[in-house]
């Protein structure tokens, strides 16, 4: 098993992602965590969620990085650590071709992450969805409302401790 892992960590994708991380680590120091070089999705974590916007802007505009394309932004629940988080999959589309994933975490109750909707416009709806499903707030988001569930829906459905409401506008919800 050890051997295969060593081999897979030599994948060009992982090497590229590590180079990206090195640039960011140099620029932002302690705000960026250590690099996780797994072969399936190499990622690093932003340890100071309020600096995420700066990092994102740098990632998009720095000529060395040019992350022009946000493929995905997913909300995640970490019930054991009492945290919520997002995972962003970024890519330099058509320019440099490298990919990396970024994780940002915040407190479970009243947690705030800075919004990157102004950096990548696609993040606007993804963040609304994460808010809808998990309930973390994105600061400076242009239009933070629920997107999939109705406005007056109770609770955040994808949290691990979610209990479905009994009725919605007089209609029975559970089976």
């Amino acid at each position: 098993m050890g051997e295969t892992q060593e081999n897979t960590s030599q994948l060009p994708e992982v090497i590229e992602a590590k180079a990206v991380w090195a640039v960011l680590k140099e620029k932002f120091g302690d705000a960026v965590s250590e690099f996780d070089e797994n072969p399936t999705m190499p990622f690093f974590e932003v340890l100071e969620p309020e600096r995420w916007l700066d990092i994102a802007l740098f990632m998009r505009d720095s000529p060395k990085l040019r992350f022009t394309y946000m493929a995905c932004l997913s909300g995640v629940d970490y019930p054991e650590e009492k945290k919520l988080g997002i995972v962003c999959n970024l890519e330099s589309l058509g320019e440099l071709g490298h990919k990396i994933a970024v994780k940002v975490r915040c407190e479970r109750e009243g947690g705030v992450i800075s919004s990157v909707a102004r950096v990548w416009k696609t993040a606007e709806w993804h963040e609304r969805e994460a808010f809808d499903m998990y309930g973390m707030t994105f600061s400076n988001h242009p239009d933070l409302r629920r997107i999939l569930c109705p406005e007056d829906w109770e609770g955040y459905p994808l949290r691990k401790d979610y209990e479905v409401q009994e009725t919605y506008h007089g209609i029975k919800v559970p089976e």
Partner: peptide, 20 residues
């Protein structure tokens, strides 16, 4: 244990799955 973002070209564009 691990995470993955896998994707493919759908008729409508990139369909990706982030799995943990």
């Amino acid at each position: 244990a691990g995470e993955v973002y896998g994707r493919a070209e759908n008729p409508r564009g990139e369909l990706g799955f982030y799995i943990q």
